[in-house]
Design a protein around this nucleic acid. Structure first.
Length: 705
DNA sequence: CAATTCGGGATCTGC
DNA sequence: TCCCGAATTG
C-alpha cells in the first residue's frame, strides 16, 4: 500500500489499481463475478477527474441496465461529487440523448417517442394486415434482431434472417411506416446515432471533441450495433475502456455478440488487458458450485475465480411439492435470517420468468413480508399505463400511428375498425396527422361522429394545456386520465377483475411530478417510462425482500440468494440446446454468483402452468452439479429422469428395430425406471417404452432439436 | 357497422 | 389462465 496514494485508492488490489491508473492506449478489463469491477470503474472516473484534470462532461460511461447505471452514478458521486456532470447512462438512453439533440440531422421529430416491442409488433400488423398476430410478433422480433446486427433492409447480409417469405420487403415496409410516425424503436436508438456519426462530419467532430473517455460496462452483452456505435463515437484522442466477463454473457437471445470482447484488442489498437480474478463477494463453496456450472460449457475464455473470504456453508437444495411450498420455504429461510439479526433487504428471490413472481406476491403479504418487485411490469399491469401514455404521446406527436390506434376507441366511443382504417388512409392520402384526419373523415354512424369530435376536441384541449404551461406535468397527466375516461374505464376493469389498474395510474401520475409541464418535459417523461420499466412500479420500500428475474440481477449482490424453479422444462426449457443451453448455464452462473453468504436452490415436483398442474423432473443442471457441492433437503431427487428428459423429447422422430419410424407423443416421469415414452409409429400402432430397459429405440437425425 | 361472446391455442429472458 | 380471432347479435 502506498501512503502517498489518495484515500479512495487505498484498499484496491494491485490488478484493480493498475486498471484504475492505466492510461495511454485502450483497456480491456476481464473481470470475473464479484471482482470489484464497479468499484474499479467508479474509482477510475473519479481519478480521471481529480488527478488527471478531465472535465466530467468529457466522460461517458455506458451500462446495460438502468439499475446498474443508477448505482454507478451514486457510487462515483460518493467518491467525487463532480461525477454528477459526467454522462453515466444505458446504451439506449445515451442514444436517445444524442438523437434529441440532433433530431433534425437524424431526420426525425425532436419530440419522438420510443416504440417498445409491443408497439413494434403493432406497427408490423398495421403495415402488413394480412399477417396473423403470432407471425407479426415473430416478424417484429426478426426485425429487432436485424437492427441488433446493424442491418438495413437493403443490407446484403440480411439473408441470414430466414423463415419469412419476403423479409427484406416486410422490413422495408415496417421501416417506412415507422419513419412516417416520426418515432423510433429500440434498435433505432443505437443505429440512428451511429449513422449520424458516420455520415455527418460536423457532428462527429463535435462528439469526438467532447467525449475523451468512454467506458463500457458489461461489455460481453453488447451487440454488433452497439459495437459499431462505440467505434463511431471513439475519436482518435479518446480513451476507451471496456469491462466484461464472457461467462456472464446472457443476452445472446437479443443479439449480444461475445465476439465483441474477443476482437476488441484487434479493433482498438494499443489495448492493454487486465484480469480481475479475486472474488471479494462470495464464499468458496458458492464460487465452486457456480464454476462447476460454466465448466460444462465449451466455448469460453476460461478463468479462475479465487475467493478472498473464508468460511461459509454449503449451498442448499430444497425439494418441494409445488410453487406454494416453494413460497413457504422461502418464508422460512427469510424468518431464520431475520432471527439471526439480518434484514429483509439482504434476501433476493430469483426466478427465470416474471410469471413466477405471482406465488411469492400472494404468499408474502399474509406472512408480513415486505417485498420489492424489480423489473418488468407484467403486461396487464402495463396496459392502463400505456393507454394514458398513448394520449400523451399523441399530444407530443400526432403522427404516432400506434398511439392513435390504441386509444382512438378506448374507452369505446363508437369508432370501429373500419372507421379507424378510413381515418388512417385519409391521413396518409392527405399527408396529414391522424388527429386532424379524425376530425375530417365522415363517420358512418351518429355515435361515431360524436366520438370522433369528442376525441379530437380532447387532444386539442390537452395540447392547449401544454402550451399554456400553467399546471404541473403530474396534474396534466391526472387531467388526461380523468377526462379521457380511461380512469373510469379501468376502475370498472378493476372491479370486474380485482386488478390494480387505478393504483398503477396513480403511480404514473406520481412519476410525472419529477418533470416540467412543457413539451420537452413530456418527451423526457415518456422516454424515462419507456426506457426504465421499473420507474412507475411504485414507491421504494426501505427494507424489503427483492423479487427479481435472474437476468435482472446482473451486477447486483445479496447476502442471501434463493434461486427458485430448478425444473427441467422451465430452466432450462426443453428446446434449449447447444449455444442456447450454454447461455442458460451462464445465467445460472450469474444467479449463483450474486450470493455473498448463503445460496439456496429450490426444485418443485409440480407447478401450476397456464392454469394446469404440470409435473416437472429436476433441471438437468442439477444433474450436472458435483455430488458434494451442495446439500439436499426435503426429499430425494431422481436425477436419472432429468438426464433422460434431456435426451427424449415430445415430437422427436425415432426409429425402433421392430416397429420402424415413429414420433414421440409424450415423455412421462417413471420414477426409478427413468422416463416412459409414448410413441406412435407410421404403422399406426401406439406403444410405450422405457429407454432405460431397451436399446432398440434410437433418435433419428432429422430432428429440429 | 360496432360490440360482445365463445372456443382454440399458447409458453421467456429486456433496453 | 389469458389472449386472439371468428362468429353472432344489437
Amino acid at each position: 500500500m502506498n501512503p502517498e496514494q489518495p484515500d479512495y485508492l487505498q484498499g484496491l488490489n494491485p490488478e484493480q489499481l493498475s486498471a484504475v491508473l492505466h492510461e495511454g492506449g485502450n483497456l480491456l478489463i476481464l473481470a470475473g463475478a464479484g471482482s470489484g469491477k464497479t468499484r474499479v470503474i467508479t474509482t477510475k472516473i473519479a481519478w480521471l477527474i481529480r488527478e488527471r484534470g478531465f472535465a466530467p462532461e468529457s466522460i461517458l460511461a455506458v451500462t446495460f441496465t438502468n439499475k446498474a447505471a443508477a448505482e454507478m452514478k451514486e457510487r462515483a458521486c460518493r467518491i467525487e461529487p463532480a461525477c454528477e456532470r459526467a454522462n453515466l447512462r444505458t446504451f439506449h438512453s445515451f442514444g436517445a440523448w444524442l438523437l434529441r439533440r440532433n433530431a433534425d440531422l437524424a431526420g426525425i421529430d425532436k419530440n419522438f417517442t420510443i416504440y417498445d416491442d409491443d408497439d413494434s409488433a403493432a406497427l408490423v400488423r398495421a403495415a402488413l394486415p394480412s399477417l396473423a398476430r403470432p407471425e407479426a410478433t415473430r416478424l417484429a422480433h426478426a426485425i429487432a434482431r436485424a437492427k441488433d446486427y446493424s442491418l438495413d433492409p437493403d443490407s446484403p447480409d440480411l439473408g441470414a434472417f430466414k423463415g419469412f417469405s419476403d423479409f427484406r420487403r416486410c422490413y422495408a415496409e415496417y421501416q417506412q411506416r415507422l419513419r412516417a410516425t416520426g418515432n423510433v424503436d429500440f434498435g433505432d436508438l443505437i443505429n440512428l446515432p451511429t449513422r449520424l456519426l458516420e455520415e455527418n462530419e460536423a457532428v462527429r467532430r463535435r462528439l469526438h471533441d467532447r467525449f475523451r473517455v468512454i467506458l463500457v460496462d458489461e461489455y460481453q452483452d453488447s451487440n454488433v450495433a452497439q459495437f459499431r456505435l462505440l467505434k463511431a463515437l471513439a475519436g482518435p484522442e479518446a480513451y476507451v475502456c471496456v469491462v466484461g466477463d464472457d461467462d456472464q454473457s446472457i443476452y445472446r437471445f437479443r443479439g449480444a455478440e461475445v465476439q465483441n470482447i474477443l476482437s476488441f484488442p484487434d479493433i482498438f489498437p494499443n489495448t492493454a488487458t487486465i484480469r480481475l480474478e479475486r472474488n471479494y463477494r462470495s464464499y468458496q463453496s458458492i464460487l465452486s458450485i457456480a464454476t462447476s456450472v460454466v465448466e460444462k460449457n465449451e466455448g469460453r475464455l476460461g478463468k479462475v475465480l479465487r475467493a478472498e473470504r473464508t468460511g461459509g456453508g454449503k449451498p442448499q437444495l430444497a425439494v418441494l411439492a409445488n410453487q406454494n411450498e416453494e413460497a413457504a420455504y422461502c418464508i422460512r429461510i427469510i424468518d431464520k435470517h431475520l432471527r439471526n439479526g439480518g434484514s429483509f433487504s439482504d434476501v433476493a428471490i430469483l426466478y427465470r420468468t416474471n410469471a413466477q413472481s405471482l406465488a411469492f406476491e400472494r404468499a408474502f403479504p399474509p406472512a408480513g413480508l415486505p417485498y420489492r418487485l424489480v423489473g418488468a411490469l407484467r403486461f396487464y399491469e402495463r396496459e392502463e399505463v400505456k393507454d394514458i401514455l398513448a394520449f400523451l404521446a399523441l399530444v407530443s406527436n400526432r403522427r404516432d400511428e400506434i398511439a392513435f390506434r390504441r386509444i382512438i376507441n378506448k374507452p369505446v366511443r363508437g369508432i370501429g375498425d373500419s372507421s379507424v382504417e378510413l381515418i388512417i388512409e385519409e391521413a396518409f392520402a392527405q399527408n396529414q396527422d391522424f388527429v386532424s384526419a379524425a376530425a375530417v373523415v365522415k363517420m358512418k354512424t351518429a355515435k361515431g361522429r360524436a366520438g370522433a369530435a369528442a376525441f379530437t376536441a380532447f387532444i386539442d384541449d390537452l395540447s392547449a394545456r401544454f402550451e399554456q404551461n400553467l399546471e404541473s406535468l403530474a396534474r396534466l397527466v391526472e387531467h388526461c386520465a380523468k377526462e379521457s375516461g380511461l380512469l373510469e374505464y379501468h376502475r370498472g376493469q378493476d372491479e370486474i377483475a380485482g386488478s390494480q389498474k387505478v393504483s398503477n395510474i396513480d403511480e404514473l401520475i406520481n412519476a410525472a411530478s419529477d418533470y416540467p409541464a412543457t413539451r420537452d418535459g413530456l418527451s423526457a417523461f415518456l422516454e424515462a417510462v419507456e426506457l426504465d420499466r421499473a420507474m412507475a412500479s411504485g414507491e421504494v420500500l426501505q427494507d424489503a425482500v427483492t423479487l427479481i428475474t435472474m437476468h435482472n440481477t446482473k451486477g447486483l449482490e445479496f447476502p442471501v440468494v434463493i434461486i427458485t424453479g430448478m425444473e427441467q422444462g422451465l430452466f432450462p426449457r426443453d428446446n434449449e440446446e447447444g449455444e442456447e443451453l450454454e447461455e442458460q448455464r451462464r445465467l445460472l452462473y450469474v444467479a449463483m454468483t450474486r450470493a455473498k453468504n448463503e445460496l439456496y436452490l429450490t426444485y418443485c415436483r409440480n407447478r401450476l402452468f397456464r392454469g394446469r398442474i404440470m409435473d416437472y423432473p429436476p433441471s438437468r443442471f442439477l444433474a450436472e452439479l458435483p455430488a458434494g457441492s451442495y446439500e439436499t433437503t426435503g426429499g430425494k431427487l431422481n436425477l436419472a429422469v432429468s438426464a433422460a428428459m434431456a435426451t427424449w423429447k415430445r415430437g422427436m422422430n425415432v426409429y425402433h428395430d421392430d416397429h420402424g419410424s415413429g414420433q414421440i407423443l409424450a415423455v412421462k416421469d417413471a420414477g426409478e425406471a427413468g422416463v416412459c415414452l409414448v410413441v406412435r409409429f407410421e404403422t399406426g400402432r401406439q406403444l410405450q417404452f422405457f429407454p432405460k430397459y431397451t436399446s432398440k429405440l434410437e433418435v433419428l437425425k432429422n430432428n429440429d432439436f
